[in-house]
Write a protein that binds this DNA or RNA. Structure first.
Ligand SMILES: [Mn+2]
Ligand SMILES: [Mn+2]
Ligand SMILES: [Zn+2]
Ligand SMILES: [Zn+2]
Lengths: 137, 137
DNA sequence: AAAACTATGCAACTGTATTGCAAAGTTATT
DNA sequence: AATAACTTTGCAATACAGTTGCATAGTTTT
């Protein structure tokens, strides 16, 4: 009997172990991106390294994407169904300097850039910092 | 008798101590942005914390700007003369995944973004990753 | 010259990320 | 069904960037 999310893991070539199902479920519940340390706190007892490796596996297999928001801890969020993490799939992220939350602005595609001669592009990390709607209330 | 660079420090309200002159000189010699650890290696004997605080002071006073390139160590580069580190002063950065260098693309301004309702903008960190011209030779 | 302020140096500490290795669990082979 | 091969998980230890506290040295003001 497979969990609701097994299919999504299988589609990305990740074996849906118990641990991975749990992690996927937690990630799916988040409105904003989450760090390894924050993920760890969602569980009563879990090994940090197992979570670390689960996140790495998810990232490799494009189940999640990493966001370097400059806080010193990398944040993670589920990829959209259609996402292949190509430059054209990438969206902008927003980091609130007030509450510390990091948002996926899934609707805002990363703008194209004309690089100088002989520079070739692989990916883009674009993080806007400011105050989020919640904190602006 | 003041060093060549004293004026630039004074203009930014930083007292040009011997240490700060040295650090400024090293920063000025760099073609690409530099981390605290790399800066430390440019000196025979220097205290890491002093360099750390020098960089913090320089950053506060807008002598330099910080670049979060996602490598785990923040890079620093001198600001342009006209820079006030406002959103419109910001440029794109490029991190080469081959040689690890982080470039200031001073000519490429960070594109404007239409944030969602009630999100307010303070700054933007945009890092393009790929292979630089040197490594593409 | 003394007092007040600023900058530097050293030691210690925090937190994130990462590796090695052994044990447990799963899948494939006989 | 037993064995072997492979994958995943757990625990211990380590690496390293960033940061703080406090004492000393240096500078500026009174
Ligand atoms: Mn995202
Ligand atoms: Mn720059
Ligand atoms: Zn907020
Ligand atoms: Zn390069």
């Amino acid at each position: 009997m497979g969990s609701n999310y097994d299919q999504q893991l299988i589609e990305r070539n990740v074996k849906p172990t118990a641990m991975r199902q749990l992690v996927y479920t937690v990630l799916n519940e988040q409105k904003t991106a989450i760090s390894l340390a924050e993920l760890e706190q969602k569980f009563e007892k879990v090994d940090r390294v197992t979570l670390y490796r689960t996140l790495k596996t998810f990232e490799d297999k494009k189940v999640i994407h990493a966001i370097e928001d400059g806080t010193g801890s990398v944040k993670y969020a589920l990829c959209q169904d259609t996402c292949e993490c190509n430059p054209k799939d990438l969206h902008v992220h927003f980091h609130c300097t007030e509450c510390g939350q990091t948002y996926c602005l899934n609707d805002i595609q990363v703008p194209g850039i004309n690089l100088p001669q002989n520079f070739t592009l692989e990916s883009v990390n674009m993080v806007v910092k400011g105050v989020c709607d919640e904190c602006n209330k």
